[in-house]
């Protein structure tokens, strides 16, 4: 009997049945919300009343009159940039040592611990540790005669603190992504490089880094997107304070919506932030890819 070719189109209605939940979900929780969000951004709406169409006024207000909004965009950049610029190299460095260490199970468990912890606990744990006067860190610094900074009550330090905690939270995950990439590299390549007399530095720049570039691009862009839109940690840790110093845009729009009940303006703000993230992610992706 001649072997029949496999017919991937032979499922009849089955694929559509399998996809039904996804399609329903995509409609109700993806397409409609996006459309609704865009529509809302052209309205003024206190949801205890009815929405009224205001055209581009919300965007106009945010762009031209709302200084706090611009400040929040700036804070968002500082947060995301600090997170990427410090966090990515750090987890790459950790991955180098981790991938060459014994006892991986133990190290992995320890470094992955923050990822398992809910963000409220993370925020509060660090509030305790960073307490100006009686937190563990400033007590430790005090023991060696240093006056620690006011980690959470000084505006500039508060931003540093939330960035550091965010890095602490994510370092383990990115370290594992990088080490997976590093371990994917054949040892023969290194042996070959060594035989050719390549210096360690040269091996690093010419062999290792190009090979992990995809992982590097992945981690950098996802970290950037995460950093730009993540506000749970800041909400629980500083509430955007002190004096608005850690108020990032996603948090600002959240509070605008659910504290001040300005749904229209909040939607407009969220869309602006999303547009910024989208454009920058694409640029970043192009730039990182382009050097290949």
């Amino acid at each position: 009997m001649p072997r029949r070719e496999f017919d991937p189109g032979g499922g009849g209605a089955a694929p559509w049945v399998f996809l039904a939940p996804l399609i329903a979900f995509a409609a109700v929780f993806f397409v409609i919300p996006l459309g609704f969000s865009i529509w809302l951004s052209f309205t003024r709406w206190n949801p205890l009343g009815t929405p009224s169409w205001v055209g581009l006024r919300q965007f106009e207000y945010l762009f031209t009159r709302d200084g706090d909004f611009w400040r929040s965009i700036l804070n968002t950049f500082v947060f995301a940039f600090g997170f990427v610029a410090l966090g990515v190299p750090l987890s790459l460095g950790l991955a180098f040592v981790f991938s060459r260490a014994r006892g991986k199970t133990l190290w992995r468990s320890v470094y992955y611990l923050p990822q398992l912890t809910n963000i409220v606990a993370i925020a509060y744990l660090w509030q305790f540790v960073l307490d100006d006067r009686y937190g563990a860190i400033n007590r430790l610094l005090g023991m060696v005669g240093l006056a620690g900074p006011n980690w959470l009550s000084d505006p500039a330090m508060a931003m540093v603190s939330v960035v550091l905690v965010m890095i602490w939270y994510d370092a383990g995950k990115n370290m594992l992504v990088f080490s997976a990439a590093l371990e994917g590299v054949d040892r023969e390549i290194y042996d070959a490089a060594a035989l050719d007399g390549a210096s360690p530095l040269r091996t690093l720049t010419s062999v290792t880094l190009p090979i992990i570039r995809p992982a590097f691009i992945f981690v950098t862009i996802t970290s950037f997107i995460t950093g730009m839109g993540f506000f749970a940690l800041i909400l629980a840790m500083t509430g955007g304070g002190p004096r608005g110093a850690t108020e990032v845009t996603a948090l600002y729009t959240y509070q605008m919506a659910f504290e001040s009940l300005r749904m229209g303006r909040a939607s407009a703000g969220a869309l602006i932030l999303f547009a910024i993230i989208g454009v920058l992610s694409i640029l970043q992706f192009r730039a990182l890819r382009g050097r290949e």
């Binding site: 100006d132 006067r133 400033n138 610094l141 005090g142 006056a147 620690g148 304070g241």
Partner: peptide, 18 residues
């Protein structure tokens, strides 16, 4: 203040709250 200049006992405090 303590050795590092941090206030240990405060003569007056603002009742900071959220």
């Amino acid at each position: 203040r303590n050795d590092q200049g941090r206030i240990e006992t405060a003569g007056f405090a603002f009742a900071e709250s959220s």
